[in-house]
Design a protein around this nucleic acid. Structure first.
Length: 934
RNA sequence: GCGGAUAUGGCGUAAUUGGUAGCCGCGCCAGACUUAGGAUCUGGUGCCGUAAGGCGUGGGGGUUCGAGUCCCUUUAUCCGCACCA
């Protein structure tokens, strides 16, 4: 659709820039703490400013949150709706490596472009609160929080973080034997042992307790990127960014003891208004499993092996034991005759990457160590094996294998000919020979057999009986394990937050608060040094004034985004991350909208970060995001042309069957409603200049497919193009009209004309045939009032439940009805203008000012629904026979059932559908339906 | 393999939560205005059928006076996790 200027009565291209300028000049969206009003905090996941700019998928969530923010403001709330940039990141650094340009420079350019694009869509962001994670005055507080974590430990009994000083006092008084602290592997020591240690040794031990700590950990090392990646930055053995191979390597890294918070992160999910699926993803990620740890004595030895099991009830069926190949016990367990076999097996597993292991997941491998443990209940010796299927990092790295009741154990037992003993049976069944089973019986339903002291019990009571028994005998205890692992927090990269850490005698010390921020130094190249140190190793004088070297790694991407929502509350405060006053006013985020791709990364890290700050009393709420909505992804909708093979002829979609053709992606920006602009096609690329077309009905119709929105598919649509062509209000309405917010959908401009037409019809309600503003002050008719109030009700409900697509449709119905009623009454159009303001703020401002207002429509009042305008005196009731609707009758509202029955039976149509058959029953649902059962 | 989500006209979708299936929009068909129309307006448009009528919410079964909605089962697609003991 192309309109000439003259024809256009609704001149969005004049209206929109005008009001954007007005908002800027009048600081319409600036918000300050105001205790006389209730607060509401609406947050979008801030974008990483990439060089490609925004495409139409990005604003989807922003539009939804903007509608909600504006709606809340119209309802009298003081709404915080900020925006900023997650500005540290790999692409800028990669670009810097290639071009030598400082990443700060390209980031700045990209941010400017993002801002222009965002401004054109008319968002109500308070830009005075903008944050950029790469700015020193912002990352000062990222570093500050890290220092706080360094200086804290986790008290398991209190389930909270506490200052490290408290732990020091405890060590001096009692050593580490009494305190219940989250820690890395460490040995026990008494108070006198502790007090005798050197400072260096004390610091080494303390690192095992700090929430931010240094440890030698197996990391995902990506040689191509020269850095370590977090688990969620690796997919199928390749880096998510760039797709480079990733290998396992042991390195000394900064870690965050997020595992200490596993219980709280899991339990507190209950209180959040997040979708069940998202909570489920987090639950899976945290991975709680309830079980018991049990000690198995070795045969012919004094040592013991600790195993973790979730099925202590099956202990009588434990016929062998399996250790992870990496387990430290393996060496001492291996008997001379098996040593070479064990060493061979371990060497094999080490050689294979995680990726290879995964692709051969079904293959069963293992090796006998030569040693035996004693099953503490049967007292039978059981062989100890090692196998890849036991993970060193989970539980104790050792399992008691119960082949009858665990599928992997069964497979293993069958492969290596180990004994299988059934100990659980389905109620009512008789035991069978488990060596003939094709599947193990893993279910937690059943009755225990072959198990001495627990025979005849159901699984649940058998578990607690065994647990009590082992605890009494001191050979085990109940234990809850979590899958969640500590976050590795070092990156061997330039473009990130420097650690506020220096080393004295090889021991890390944090900087004082007043020394923060520790600014990112200049370097001559953004690459590792010759010695293999991170890029910061190139900086001159990367040391304290006393000459102690600074840490050379930088923080990972999630560091800066873990507390940004707090900084928005008080973005320029130089004394604190956020002042107590600002934090107590804004509290936490009421509504958070963003993509589901952050389910296990950002959304876990920031919950952890926030809980930590809460423990130390810096913030007043222990969860950052009360309600969270995941907007669906916008996929691309690609278009194709069909080239007849060996020619430069292109055949239209429905004629292509008659030809031998090649499918070619065509730029969707030269296709309209699947019809190719053949002239533009010829100028698109040189090879198409003399293209010929085989048309159908005079048109070239393109094929289409839903694919990822990407440059190579030629299906990227920029919001700028839509804004230029139809205006921002049309873009906003259309993105909402596309379907439910949470649902993924392809971007398809085919329906956008309908939304644009709707805005023009709205405009015309306020104008006469000469496009002069013409609104009457006459009283509204009952019919007009009914239309209005129906719409008020529907829209209020829809916004409250984030059903923005049905909201747009309600507007269309309303404008259609008012157009039919030829309504131009102020009493109707003025409230309507307010209703539409959250969705289409520019046209609403224009109409609002035409209606004679001198203040912004943002400060109007949301219309109040009055039921008295929508009541009917009669109801058109559907009458159905055996559930099939046959005809309608008008009946007075709230007519007693008996009279409705009478009316139906007397109706001339009834006899026809009874067909002489006897009437069985008649069901009358008041004001809903009548069903006649024949 | 485990967990989660989705499935309705040619297309995007809607359905007061167990009560008229297909609202709104696109597209399509017909007409009006017009020098013209990719503008605007009017009417039509789930499928089969000339019609009467029949059939219809991925498939099969069930509960119910009544099922897109609830239960069982099955298929397909998408997403998350993946030897977690």
């Amino acid at each position: 659709m192309k309109l000439t200027y003259k024809e256009m009565d609704y001149t969005f291209n004049e209206i929109e820039p005008k009001w954007q300028e007005y908002w800027k000049k009048n600081k319409t969206y600036k918000v300050v703490e105001d205790k006389s009003k209730s607060k509401f905090y609406v947050l979008d996941m801030f974008p990483y400013p990439s060089g490609a700019g925004l495409h139409v998928g990005h604003p989807l969530g922003y539009i939804a949150s903007d509608i909600y923010s504006r709606y809340k403001r119209l309802n009298g709330f003081n709404v915080l709706h900020p925006m900023g940039y997650d500005a540290f990141g790999l692409p800028a650094e990669q670009y810097a490596i290639q071009t030598g340009q400082h990443p700060a420079k390209t980031t700045d350019i990209n941010i400017k472009r993002y801002r222009e694009q965002l401004d054109k869509i008319g968002f109500s962001f308070d830009w005075s609160r903008e944050v950029r994670t790469c700015e020193p005055q912002y990352y000062k507080w990222t570093q500050w929080a890290f220092v706080k974590m360094f200086n804290s430990w986790f008290n398991i009994d209190a389930q909270k973080a506490e200052p490290i000083e408290k732990l020091l006092l405890e060590f001096e008084k009692n050593g580490n034997t009494k305190v219940n602290a989250a820690h890395s592997e460490t040995t026990e020591f008494s108070a006198s042992q502790w007090n005798a240690l050197s400072e260096k040794d004390k610091e080494e031990i303390l690192l095992n307790y700090r929430l931010a700590y240094l440890a030698d950990v197996m990391v995902n090392w990506c040689p191509a990127l020269g850095t370590v990646l977090a688990n969620d930055e690796v997919k199928e053995g390749l880096s998510v960014r760039g797709g480079h191979p990733v290998e396992q390597r042991k390195m000394r890294q900064w870690c965050l003891r997020i595992s200490a918070y596993a219980k709280r992160l899991l339990d507190d999910l209950e209180r959040l208004e997040w979708t069940d699926s998202l909570k489920e993803i987090q639950r899976n990620w945290i991975g709680r499993s309830e079980g018991a740890e049990m000690l198995f004595k070795l045969k012919d030895s004094e040592s013991e092996i600790l195993v973790f099991t979730t099925r202590p009830d099956t202990i009588y069926g434990a016929t062998f034991m399996v250790l992870a190949p990496e387990s430290e016990l393996v060496d001492s367990l291996t008997t001379p005759e098996y040593r070479s076999a064990i060493e061979g097996y371990i060497a094999d597993t080490k050689k294979r990457t995680e990726r290879e292991r995964m692709s051969e997941a079904k293959k069963v491998t293992g090796q006998f160590t030569g040693s035996y443990a004693i099953n503490p209940f049967t007292n039978n010796p059981i062989p100890i094996w090692i196998s890849e299927y036991v993970l060193a990092g989970y539980g104790t790295g050792a399992i008691m294998a119960v082949p009858a009741h665990d599928s992997r154990d069964l497979l293993f037992a069958k492969t290596f000919g180990l004994p299988i003993v059934q100990t659980v049976i389905r109620p009512g069944e008789t035991p069978s020979d488990p060596s003939t089973w094709s599947e193990s019986y893993d279910s937690k339903e059943g009755i225990v057999i072959n198990s001495d002291i627990i025979n005849g019990l159901d699984v649940k009571s058998a578990i607690s009986t065994i647990n009590n028994f082992v605890e009494e005998k001191g050979i085990g205890k109940k234990k809850i394990n979590y899958r969640l692992r500590d976050a590795i927090f070092s990156r061997q990269r330039y473009w990130g937050e420097p650690f506020p850490i220096y080393y004295k005698d090889g021991i890390p010390y944090p900087l004082e608060d007043k020394q923060l921020p520790l600014e990112l130094p200049e370097v001559d190249a953004y690459l590792p040094t010759e010695k293999g140190e991170p890029p910061l190793g190139r900086a001159t004088n990367w040391q304290t004034s006393e000459g102690y070297p600074y840490e050379m790694s930088t923080m990972p991407g999630f560091a800066g985004s873990s507390a940004y929502y707090l900084r928005y509350m008080d973005p320029t405060n130089s004394e604190a991350l956020v002042s107590k006053e600002a934090n107590e006013y804004w509290e936490n985020v009421d509504l958070y909208i963003g993509g589901t791709e952050h389910a296990t990364g950002h959304l876990i890290y920031s919950r952890f970060w926030n809980k930590f700050l809460y423990d130390l009393g810096y913030v007043c709420k222990d969860e950052p995001f009360k309600k969270l909505i995941n907007q669906g992804m916008i996929q691309g909708r690609s278009n194709f042309v069909y080239r007849v093979k060996g020619t430069n002829k292109y055949v239209s979609l429905n004629l292509r069957k008659d030809y031998d053709i090649t499918e070619i992606h065509v730029d969707v920006n030269i296709v309209d409603n699947d019809i190719l602009d053949t002239a533009k096609f010829k100028t698109w690329r040189p090879e198409f200049a003399d293209a010929e077309f085989i048309l159908e009905d005079g048109k070239y119709i393109c094929g289409w497919a839903v694919e990822k929105m990407s440059k190579s598919m030629w299906n990227v649509v920029s919001p700028d193009d839509i804004v230029n062509r139809y205006g921002a209000d049309t873009l906003r309405l259309y993105e909402m009209f596309l379907g439910p917010l949470e649902q993924s959908k392809p971007w398809d401009t085919n329906g956008i004309d309908g939304v644009f037409k709707f805005l023009r019809r709205l405009w015309r309600l306020f104008h006469d045939n000469n496009n002069s503003f013409a609104v009457s002050n006459e009283a509204a008719t009952p019919q007009e009032l009914k239309t209005l109030h129906k719409t008020i009700k529907k829209l209020t409900e829809d916004i409250e439940k984030f059903s923005f697509n049905t909201g747009v449709s309600a507007f269309m119905i309303c404008v259609n009805e008012l157009t039919e009623q030829k309504c131009n009454k102020r009493a109707i159009l003025e409230p309507l203008t307010v209703l539409i303001a959250p969705y289409a703020p520019h046209i609403a401002e224009e109409l609002w000012s035409l209606l004679g207002h001198s203040t912004t429509v943002c400060d109007a009042q949301w219309p109040v629904f009055d039921g008295k305008f929508v009541v009917d005196s009669t109801f058109t009731c559907p009458v159905s026979f055996n559930g099939k609707t046959r005809f309608m009758i008008d009946i007075p509202l709230n007519l007693p059932k008996e009279e409705v029955e009478k009316m139906v039976l007397e109706n001339e149509n009834t006899a026809k559908y009874l067909e002489g058959k006897p009437l069985k029953k008649i069901i009358v649902v008041p004001n809903k339906i009548v069903n006649v059962v024949v």
